[in-house]
Design a protein around this nucleic acid. Sequence first.
DNA 1: GCACCAACCGGAGAGGTCTCCGCTTGGCGT
DNA 2: ACGCCAAGCGGAGACCTCTCCGGTTGGTGC
Lengths: 222, 222
Amino acid sequence: MTTPAGRASAGRTPTERADRPEHAARPERTERADAARNRLRILDAARRLLAADGFAELSLDAVAKEAGVGVGTVYRRFHNRAGLVYALIEDNETRFQEAFARHCGDGAPSAYERLRAFLHGMAELVDDNRELLLLAEASAPAGRYHSTPFRRHHEQVVGMVTELAPGVDAAYLADLLLMAYTPGLFDFQRTERGWDVDRIKGGLDALIAGIGAAPPVTPCAG
Amino acid sequence: MTTPAGRASAGRTPTERADRPEHAARPERTERADAARNRLRILDAARRLLAADGFAELSLDAVAKEAGVGVGTVYRRFHNRAGLVYALIEDNETRFQEAFARHCGDGAPSAYERLRAFLHGMAELVDDNRELLLLAEASAPAGRYHSTPFRRHHEQVVGMVTELAPGVDAAYLADLLLMAYTPGLFDFQRTERGWDVDRIKGGLDALIAGIGAAPPVTPCAG
DNA sequence: GCACCAACCGGAGAGGTCTCCGCTTGGCGT
DNA sequence: ACGCCAAGCGGAGACCTCTCCGGTTGGTGC
């Protein structure tokens, strides 16, 4: 998300700037050197603080101090705590995508198997990053739906579901499937309900097996 | 935006963490008269403020002032903002339960029809209380799973699913079905995706129809 | 080089959440 | 009636998030 597309700015006179809506189609400016340096510093400081103090709390004031920048700089860059945490998350997401692609690239399995592999992979990913995801959710519960990882996951699941069961509302089902990995729910199931990851995988397996097997409304016996 | 639940100062305080299941679990001790009076005052003040200023913000300082009590009193009673908001929600929940019972009490429809009615009713309930639910979720995303309404809903859905499809993991499926009404998701679907309530109802209908129709794992063809 | 200026920086301050703790009081036993 | 005391009260204060804005600087056109 952070890679700047190096595009030189066309010289603009200040008068032009006034009569156009500011955030309409702002061409991507290259990030200034000091800004880039500070962004890295902040991300690094956050990781350090998280590792040291645990995931229960993450004060952006503290992050700023650790990074050696002012608070304003942190907020300018990441908007709010949720923004910072989501930026941290994108990293892990990349690794997941690679693993999933590797898993599905060869052999080209059926849609069912790919969906199953995806869902199982998600279970492991969420389990591994539980604390960070919980922090992200606590910071901005609704932020998830707008996040790059969620959107990408949704797209992928829609594709597989469409292939698996052409009749169903794939977009809706994808939402629901992804909701299985809402951090708070997942943690509640693992911790409070005492379920292991296999139970969750199994529940999802059964669900998608049913979907793949049965036409959406008419019963099998019919 | 707002800090999740607790402050977690250096030394752990002996006071209980906030996201415990205890909202409605009042100890057997009878509430003192002044405490009861203040609780009502606070609830009332909160409703008044919400109606007047909108649901975007609800400062407990302001609630305390409006109620004519100290901040400490508010926090003693409701632990944190989430607690106060969930207390407000329980009210609407009661009305929903009554409607659902009335709907299902006579005629004793099939499990499928009862589940369908329940899910549709939830859709309306969530749609009607979107703002309040969003506020609750923002205050404590994980608090939902511990709340009395969620637990009751879960129990009810488990019962209906068990009856409908004895082979499946009813507890897991109930979780998933209820996640369809996560406030953030629902609002995202309605607002951002531009879906209407019927689309959501329809998606759920198809899902439970499939579940009722197909045996959990073996495909029809087998 | 040099001048210009948009983007960037930093930190004071507004406003919120929640805790701490000394004072007050309702309800009970006698 | 009366005394006791756990439960309740209130608000100062610690700490946090996020905004605002005057001063600074990297990168560009000339």
